[in-house]
Design a protein around this nucleic acid. Structure first.
Length: 300
DNA sequence: CGAGTGATGCACCTGCTTAA
DNA sequence: TTAAGCAGGTGCATCACTCG
């Protein structure tokens, strides 16, 4: 590229216009510049390329042999550059071969990605998904460093600098095994507090959740005896023990081994969102993936 | 000779970069 | 953050040249 290092590449557009029009005034009009401006640019081109390029002729200018030789290669190069920086082509999922990296909890995998997975495989058979577990505090950094394309997360706690799209509202329900001896119907508040609860604490080791905060406002406490980091283990625990749990409804409503009951206390649910960085906001492949997931996830 | 065109100079403006 | 410097643009004027 040494031949280009001393050349203002914008001048190549001027040269192309001059070779097309063979007239400085018309070239200036084509470039939306004034005639003196293009005249100065022509002088710079002559200096840079060491050739007069265009010589005064009848009704305008005549190109030199050097300029004539430049005409077609220059036009092709400018066309190639124009193509390279043009708007990206529409994404073709049937032909595309790439890997999307998505951060999701096991709940998000089950409620958001599982409904989309089969359709995704059919629509984009050569694409792969990598699901990662990344704490919310590291989402932005991972996306910024091109290690993550998308996150399935709650609105609460979502990094504000990320783009987002609402997916659905989720509610907590009281869940126990189908033949739980003490829970043939929804318990009252006192019984609810006496039951042995399992809690999901993604950060690990926590024994207090939104249910406990709601109870505390009434001056009550429940009996949390087990804390686990993942939702998927909870259903196994519930189906084999007398433990109960407050779980997102989508996680348990299709499980025949479990009974889903109304809790005797109102617990705030959460909004499930997709989050992504500005870096991929306008990328056709990522736009397609986000749209596909949003359409595949049931609103209810 | 007049019209059209390119080249050049001048004053001025604007936007960007850089140093304080 | 701000001021200074610089590059590049504009409009205008003028000159030289070519052509019908």
């Amino acid at each position: 590229m040494n031949n280009l290092s001393g050349l203002d590449l914008n001048l190549l557009l001027t040269l192309d216009a001059l070779l097309t029009e063979q007239n400085v005034t018309r070239a200036a009009a084509r470039l939306n510049l004034s005639q003196p401006s293009v005249s100065v640019q022509l002088a710079k081109l002559r200096e840079s390329l060491g050739d007069p390029l265009l010589l005064p002729g009848p009704r305008g200018m005549r190109p030199t042999a050097r300029a004539d030789a430049l005409r077609e290669p220059l036009r092709q190069a400018l066309r190639a550059l124009d193509h390279a920086i043009a708007s990206p082509q529409p994404f073709d999922p049937a032909q595309a071969s790439l890997t999307w990296r998505i951060a999701a909890s096991d709940y998000s995998e089950y409620s958001v990605l599982l409904p989309a997975l089969d359709g995704l495989r059919q629509a984009a058979p050569h694409c792969r998904l990598a699901l990662l577990e990344i704490p919310s505090t590291r989402l932005s950094a991972a996306m910024e460093h091109d290690k993550l394309d998308l996150a399935i997360f709650t609105r609460t706690g979502a990094p504000p600098e990320l783009r987002s799209r609402f997916l659905f509202d989720e509610n907590y329900r009281l869940v126990c095994r189908r033949d739980h001896p003490d829970l043939q119907r929804s318990p009252d508040l006192a019984q609810f507090c006496q039951l042995e609860h399992v809690i999901v604490s993604p950060d690990g080791g926590g024994f207090v959740g939104s249910t406990d905060e709601a109870l505390a406002k009434l001056g009550l406490r429940r009996n949390v005896v087990l804390s686990v980091p993942h939702f998927s283990f909870v259903s196994a625990v519930l189906s084999r023990t007398r433990l109960v749990a407050m779980l997102p409804e989508r996680l348990v409503r299709d499980d025949p081994a479990l009974r889903v009951l109304d809790a005797p206390i109102e617990i705030a649910g959460f909004e499930k969102m997709m989050l992504w960085p500005e870096r991929v906001h306008r990328d056709p492949a990522h736009q397609w993936l986000r749209e596909f997931i949003a359409r595949a996830v049931p609103a209810e």
